[in-house]
Design a protein around this nucleic acid. Structure first.
Length: 582
RNA sequence: GGGGACGUGGUCUAGGCUGGACUAGGACACCGGAUUGUCACUCCGGAGAUCGCGGGUUCAAAUCCCGUCGUCCCCGCCA
């Protein structure tokens, strides 16, 4: 007889003979009467064993198959979809016995340590929440493919064994056996392949693809992660792409968790995002905006501020309504946040009965400051003075901390936006050169292109150039980013030159791509979205590991398989490798 | 590379500051027994840890100190 789904049985099935198979979810042994909740993918149903003593020997998570008759219950269980019925078993087969479980699958959140959960991931994944997350991820991928297919995109796979691309993160390397001493690199993203595909006439490409970066891990960062990678031909300005991605986001949120989005999404320039929210991925779910009060302090009697302004820095203020009563301890904690992000301190000014705070005696006339910030009696001002990005970022983190601390962040609110007009380049102190803020294939904005191409444009002013790049941000989380690409060989060449990559090096590392640009490359651009983070947000999880079936620990290890591991000396020899002791 | 938190039977945890009746307590799981309507079944009984590892201080260390390993979080890093 065919196996039926445990969770599908209802009152109307009463009297039917059924065969079920699944895991013993729970066992209630009353002597000559034993109840078992049987679980499969579809749900739970109660089994009744009368005069079947083998049932008393069962344990949780044993795998069994039973044959029996569906019967209406005398006392239905309203907490169970199948609660109106039970299955009176006449035949029991034990398909697989379990050892005692290493941890309980009952608790939510689980009480077992994450390491234990990962070591026995096959058990952990049986938990309803993890099953839900796996299925949510599946539905997300399905919705993405469905939407993009209907928009005329095709999914093309690109190599995992490839070569190192310039700049960016540390590569994972794979030694070549056929050419000892040479290495493949696992892709940090399929960047050059997708651009090459567009040049190949694939006008609308996408791929749900694994990417690899050998950097330190975080709660929202894994060494291998999945991107929705996408590229379009004849994209010269981002508008068309914005509309497409907004539609995609709206579709996926509707299909997976039933949330509706307003489109188009708001846009902020990088400068606005930083000046108003102290972040290039601002959380727009709450206000508490920063105010630039540099002008108010350009002639301050407080040397610290005056000098910061004189050195080209900025002073940002954050008004905390009703915050004048904050304790020294609370202020100290907030200062700790600012200092973590590089601020030298956090100045404060409480507008209470009297002015309090380190700034008070340097403010003969506070009125202009009240006007600039909107501070009212009872409010608190927090200030950071430093270089633009540092000051804004440090205070932006204080803003986020206050958002959490004061419970300003509403549940269930979704605030997407585009951040645009990023700097094209940023100065790398340690390497003493310009590096690409996005990546070396990003086009400058049309109006800045002449400056990039003009050899007489002063090098030190290259930081002024804006990129035709954009990030998609949702609730303070960077979901992804992309750009309009460079599609002209000479522009690409110049870009690489600015980055300190000379013609020979460029030729050696990706001459293939520069050549491709010479054979009819259409204007193009695209975006990559972090699928893991996306699903994490849909699932309401705090950690990426909750939406990845087999994730790595913070040290990059896999407790399930024991990876990474030493290998057989023979394998090393074949590869021409030798491990140096220390 | 740096900072912080944690590590006690299978699992989670109490104890640690103030070292000595800790012979390491509890809950869940496990084993044995009882049990005909349970649904976190219940009741009775039992076994199971020398406190991550190494060293030090001390008459005495789960407890204090140092080192180390592991896990988690953060800064740096992550185009």
């Amino acid at each position: 007889m065919k196996r039926e789904a445990c969770g599908s049985l209802r009152g109307k099935d009463a009297g039917r003979k059924v065969t079920l198979a699944g895991w013993v979810h729970r066992l209630r042994d009353l002597g000559s009467l034993t109840f078992v909740d049987l679980r499969d993918e579809s749900g739970l149903v109660q089994l009744v064993f009368r005069e079947l003593p083998q049932a008393r020997k069962l344990s949780r998570e044993d795998v069994i198959r039973v044959r029996g008759t569906v019967a209406r219950r005398e006392a239905p269980n309203p907490d169970l979809p199948t609660g109106e019925v039970e299955v009176v078993v006449d035949r029991l087969e034990v398909l697989s016995q379990t050892r005692p479980l290493p941890f309980s699958l009952e608790e939510e959140p689980p009480r077992a340590s994450e390491e234990t959960r990962l070591r026995y991931r096959y058990l952990d994944l049986r938990r309803p929440r993890m099953q839900r997350n796996l299925r949510l991820r599946h539905r997300t991928s399905m919705a993405i493919r469905d939407y993009l297919d209907r928009q005329g995109f095709i999914e093309v796979e690109t190599p995992y064994l490839t070569r190192s691309t310039p700049e960016g993160a540390r590569d994972f390397l794979v030694p070549s056996r056929l050419e000892p001493g040479k290495f493949y690199a696992l892709p940090q993203s399929p960047q050059l392949f997708k651009q090459t595909l567009v040049i190949s006439g694939v006008e609308r490409y996408f791929q749900i693809v694994r990417c690899f970066r050998d950097e330190d891990l975080r709660a929202d960062r894994q060494p291998e992660f999945t991107q929705l990678d996408l590229e379009m031909a004849f994209l010269e300005a981002p508008e068309e792409l914005f509309a497409l991605i907004e539609g995609l986001l709206a579709y996926v949120f509707r299909e997976t968790i039933g949330v509706e989005f307003d489109t188009p999404f708001p846009r902020l320039s990088y400068d606005q995002a930083l000046s108003r929210y102290g972040s290039d991925k601002p959380d727009l779910r709450f206000g508490l905006e920063l105010v630039d009060v540099t002008k108010q302090f350009s002639a301050s009697e407080m040397r610290l501020l005056r000098e910061a302004v004189a050195a080209g820095g900025r002073v940002f203020a954050l008004r905390v309504p009703g915050g004048a009563g904050f304790s020294r301890k609370e202020l100290g904690e907030l200062e700790g946040v600012a200092k973590t992000y590089g601020a030298k301190g956090l100045l404060w000014l409480a507008r209470g009965e009297e002015l309090r705070g380190p700034l008070a005696k340097f403010l003969p006339d506070p009125e202009p400051l009240w006007r600039a910030t909107g501070a009212e009696p009872g409010d608190l001002l927090l200030l950071v003075a430093d270089a633009f990005e540092l000051a804004a970022t440090a205070l932006g983190q204080v803003r986020l901390e206050l958002g959490r601390k004061l419970s300003l962040i509403p549940e269930g609110k979704w605030c997407p936006l585009w951040v645009v007009d990023f700097p094209l380049l940023e100065w790398s102190e340690e390497e003493n050169r310009w590096s690409a803020r996005h990546h070396p294939f990003t086009s400058p904005k049309a109006e800045d292109l002449p400056k990039l191409m003009d050899p007489s444009f002063p090098t030190e002013r290259l930081g002024e150039l804006r990129a035709n790049a954009y990030d998609l941000v949702l609730n303070g989380v960077e979901l992804g980013g992309g750009s309009i690409r460079i599609h002209r060989r000479e522009v690409q060449q110049r870009m690489l030159e600015v980055l300190g990559i000379g013609p020979e090096e460029a030729e050696g590392r990706f001459g293939f791509f520069l050549r491709a640009l010479e054979y009819g490359a259409p204007p193009h651009g695209g975006i990559a979205l972090g699928l893991d983070r996306w699903v994490m947000m849909l699932a309401g999880e705090e950690s990426l590991r909750e939406v990845i079936a087999f994730p790595k620990t913070a040290s990059g290890a896999c407790p399930l398989t024991g990876a990474p591991a030493e290998v057989d000396p023979g394998q090393l020899a074949e590869l021409g490798l030798e491990v140096k002791g220390d």
